[in-house]
Write a protein that binds this DNA or RNA. Structure first.
Lengths: 245, 245
DNA sequence: CCAAAAGTGTTGTTGATACACCCATGT
DNA sequence: ACATGGGTGTATCAACAACACTTTTGG
């Protein structure tokens, strides 16, 4: 059964691929990139490290993977512990595994990203995140370890995913105007869009439900409010549709 | 600094998120989904387990992540050890982390997938893979652990990625005809395509270089051969282009 | 000559793009 | 009245789908 063509490492014949050697890993962590949208700016929630080796620096929100939970559950748990938000769109990015990504120890981290509505967040959290604050995506502080890389990767992922599924809606309040939605796409994708064409395309998809309500207290013509309809989305999603603007 | 809103687990105040507890993981493995294309069929390379707990069953090709290598390097190494193929397109899928995905031990695996040209493989390998054989994607045997899930996920990933980048070319020989390419897309995406429209679209992209050569020994009009040009691809890729057919 | 695949041409429809213009509202 | 954003209309152009047709080659 000598089907292994060895290069760096050699193995004896009686081993099965799955059972070759002892673990060489010190631990697995989860790191969450939490995106928010505020006044036209895409923002990320970062934690300030007040103690330990990375004192004074900022990092992503994370924690250890527990023995009896999947990484999805762990990410959900960590998000809940930090923001008390439950049942949120959460997606795994990938594993980050560079041997020296953390000094001295061999830690592999699994990245996650999520989009939260700042309004919900502010209301429901009910606690002051003294150590965690929002940072504009264009004005980031220095980050610990490879968190900069994780963040850049998740930004790329967000830009790609936002073109294929209506996940951007997670960043907006329940009721929103079409131009709010357009500005969100502009900010995420870093492009400018034509108002008229954006309206046509998004309405043509029939993904939004027009409400009777209008904006209040604005110093210009009040815009109609819309909401995202998950029911309609489910029907549409089977056929596949794209969000390129 | 009580910014943790505890739910299941509670933590004392003096801990930093990164330093809460000891590792609870028995090991990290890499599992590779290796796609090939043969006579119009999409196939996957599987290993037959001749010993150990999973005796008699089939599984993905995998191995342990070593102490001083990244998972990308590990996947590359494993692919090389098994097929002696070097410098191949290889992409991380994600981490698979269900607590009970492997009996008794807590093993997290990082999935990778790759597309190999069967011709190259047969020629260059230079060794008989007695224990590893190709299986048609529609006629898969029962797989160990969660390998079925990993495989399905990678198939989904392949279908998505193939629409956004010309990775499908990795499955074809260096020189190929337009209809070979079309059949490849049809097989991967599970759809039928119009010959004429496919030609127009793919040629319009100017991604292929027409060769002077033609097919040999075919019992019908010989088709012109093309090759994929990575130089042209690089230029195009900056603007972004899509492969939806 | 026939089968089989290579390769070309045509036409109607759809959707993206660019841009001009009118509407409502608070200051 | 004017600034600001909300909202509508339209002409042009490029891309795509469907399908009919011609060409080359081996047997």
């Amino acid at each position: 059964m000598a089907f292994l063509h060895t290069r760096k490492t050699s193995r004896t014949d009686n081993e099965t691929v799955s059972e070759i050697q002892k673990p060489t890993i010190d631990g697995i962590t989860i790191d969450c990139v939490i995106f928010g949208f505020n006044k036209g700016n895409l923002e990320v929630l970062l934690a300030h490290h007040a103690e330990g080796e990375s004192i004074g620096k900022w990092g992503l929100l994370g924690g250890y993977l527990q023995k009896e939970e999947s990484s999805d559950d762990a990410a959900q748990r960590i998000l809940y512990e930090l923001t008390s938000l439950d049942n949120i769109y959460l997606e795994q990015l990938k594993a980050f595994t560079a041997p020296k990504r953390v000094p001295r120890r061999r830690i592999v981290t699994i990245g996650y990203y999520t989009l939260v509505n700042r309004e919900d967040y502010n209301v429901k959290a009910g606690l002051t995140l003294m150590e965690a604050t929002w940072h504009k995506i264009n004005e980031l502080p220095e980050l610990i370890f490879d968190h900069q890389e994780i963040l850049q990767f998740s930004l790329m992922q967000l830009r790609n995913r936002v073109k294929q599924a209506p996940i951007g809606f997670n960043l907006l309040p329940e009721k929103f105007t079409l131009l709010q939605l357009m500005h969100l796409y502009e900010e995420i994708l870093g492009i400018e869009l034509d108002k008229s064409n954006f309206r046509r395309k998004i309405l043509h998809m029939k993904l939004l439900v027009a409400l009777e309500e209008k904006q209040q207290d604005v110093s210009h013509r009040a815009a109609k409010l819309y909401k995202f309809d998950p029911e309609i989305y489910k029907k549409l999603t089977e056929k596949g549709f794209n969000f390129e603007f």
